[in-house]
Write a protein that binds this DNA or RNA. Structure first.
Lengths: 168, 168
DNA sequence: CTAAACTTTCAATAACTTTTGAAAGTTTAA
DNA sequence: TTAAACTTTCAAAAGTTATTGAAAGTTTAG
């Protein structure tokens, strides 16, 4: 297979997977493109390569920046901005965990805490309280686990955690 | 707060979170409803409680069944089918991991293996091979980790894994 | 300060996903 | 075998999200 074909396959398949998740196709494709680009790319470059509009590129690049997995790169003597993906896949994964925790787990825990504080004493409330309590406990455990993973250094995921799983 | 209010809040908020993920609102709401119902519910029951059509209930219940987090319950003397959610939240989480691994991680690993086998030797191929290789290694590690988690018993998540994270 | 080079916004529209409900299909009891 | 009770399907409609591209905004060089 040729390099160009392989690159295109990577980008388009990554985009298709993105949509299966909650991520939109263009965002996933831009990320894939930046991952395999040695050089940082400008909005113009991305537009041309992926055949999408300026507005679309701008919106999705900003989204990737807000996830902290793509960075602005300024080149001397160039006025325009360039973008590059974090190339360390572990750092990328940790960063995604971090954001998902903040955006998704946080609000869930808030809901559950609120419902626990409501202290339902009505008939039939026992089951409800039990379910809410159990989900909350589970959420708290997950939260703690993510906390440790996030605070640990980059090689920790492959190091200690992997040893823990492999030795068992 | 009253029980009924609390239940409604749980269901509707769970549904809203669902859409943030890749899950559709009705599916998330049906799951929430079944989680807090002591009794198994019929399609009819779900239609009434959530105010959605028969077809919609049917489609989403089938989806939940395919995820293995909701089960059919047959009541003696009743012709219709009833549905109940798996109530153990750890089992539910493990089941979701299992399915996501199969549906999402599997195809990604296949893509990466295919691209690795392509052995690109062209100019500029080194960087591409490196990126693909690193993502693949990461995916394999994650896969192994999930494997251990899935094969372990139910209390293992809270037991050994949590101790591992807390003692550090 | 001005014009050129660039980035951001946003309303319109296209593309996609979910939902409905009626019709078709299936199962069961008598 | 038939009819009632129930489940599934599917095409159309509603709802949602992504994309475009032109206009507005911003920055920088001269």
């Amino acid at each position: 297979m040729e390099l160009k074909q392989a690159q295109e396959k990577f980008i388009s398949t990554w985009g298709a997977f993105g949509t299966q998740w909650g991520i939109n196709r263009t965002m996933a494709q831009i990320h894939a493109l930046l991952l395999i680009s040695e050089e940082a790319l400008s909005a113009e470059d991305i537009m041309k390569k992926l055949n999408v509009s300026r507005g679309n590129v701008n919106m999705n690049v900003r989204d990737l920046l807000s996830w902290g997995i793509v960075h602005k790169v300024l080149k001397f003597g160039e006025r325009k901005e360039f973008f590059a993906a974090e190339k360390d896949i572990y750092k990328t994964a940790i960063q995604i965990m971090k954001e998902r925790r903040k955006r998704e787990l946080g609000p869930v825990l808030e809901l559950l805490e609120g419902l626990k504080l409501a202290e339902i004493n009505e008939q039939g409330g026992d089951h409800f309280n039990k379910v809410v309590g159990e989900i909350h406990t589970f959420g708290e455990s997950t939260n703690k686990m993510l906390d440790k993973m996030i605070k640990a250094d980059e090689h920790w995921f492959t190091g200690s955690l992997m040893k823990f799983f492999v030795k068992k």
